[in-house]
Amino acid sequence: MLSSIPEFPSSSIAPAGSAENADTALRTEDLSLWYGARQALDRVDLAIPARRITALIGPSGCGKSSLLRCLNRLNDEIAECRVDGRVLIGDTDAYAKDTLVHDLRRRIGMVFQRPNPFPLSIHDNVAYGLRLLGIRHRRELDERIEAALKSATLWDEVAARLDDSAFSLSLGQQQRLVIARALAVEPEILMLDEPASALDPVSTLRFEELLHELAQRYTLLLVTHNMQQAARVSDFTAFMHQGCLIEFGDTDALFTNPRERRTEDFITGRYG
């Protein structure tokens, strides 16, 4: 925890309620981000509890996706991007000089807004990350692939056609395949950037059930613009606005009794 709690706008870091009892899987300290001259994040302090679902909500352009991309240093790929502050994954400092960026990214799985399976077979999609780690043995690969597909509740649907192209799957299946691909390399945290926005209602429902199952073993960080979804799925919710973390707390508490005026305006639909 931080020694001093910064003043508004970057307010509280510790979620109220039961979160205090949980371990912290991921923590940001004073995290700011600039794209060129434009500031996208402003001194964000956040502590994500382990093996829970934390939802990030806020109007579009508030910095939710930018925050995710800071955590696994995907922003490194953007030339004009500058980061200030600290990100701790477990006890690893993500921005320390001796951090292996690719291993950091392996430890934080990421699922994108639109399913992005590789133009490979279903089998090779899941095998992709494993092969990078040097796992070549056919039997070991197959075992790990089966386990990952089972965890993503996709195994029964694709077991018979692992060699088909990943594009032959429906969008909902593709999104679960992408999750299986991330799970195969044994991440600690799974970040999902509006993962259900491309899915139809039935697939979305199925997807949310999967999230609940995954939360028993992984720390989940879910960006969503859908507040019903955040309320349905998450244990904790963080509300962001214009690059600042406004409020962070137990989901039920935040939705029923927001402490901040702007949070209330947002969840009651006055803007966003």
Binding site: E77, L133, R181
Partner: peptide, 26 residues
């Protein structure tokens, strides 16, 4: 599309591995 290399990087591939294992074959 940029979503492919991003997916690969997010899985823990280096830029170089992304290029050789994913982009060039694609």
């Amino acid at each position: 599309p940029v979503s492919l290399p991003e997916g690969s990087l997010a899985l823990g591939a280096t830029r170089d591995e992304t290029l050789w294992h994913l982009l060039l074959p694609a």
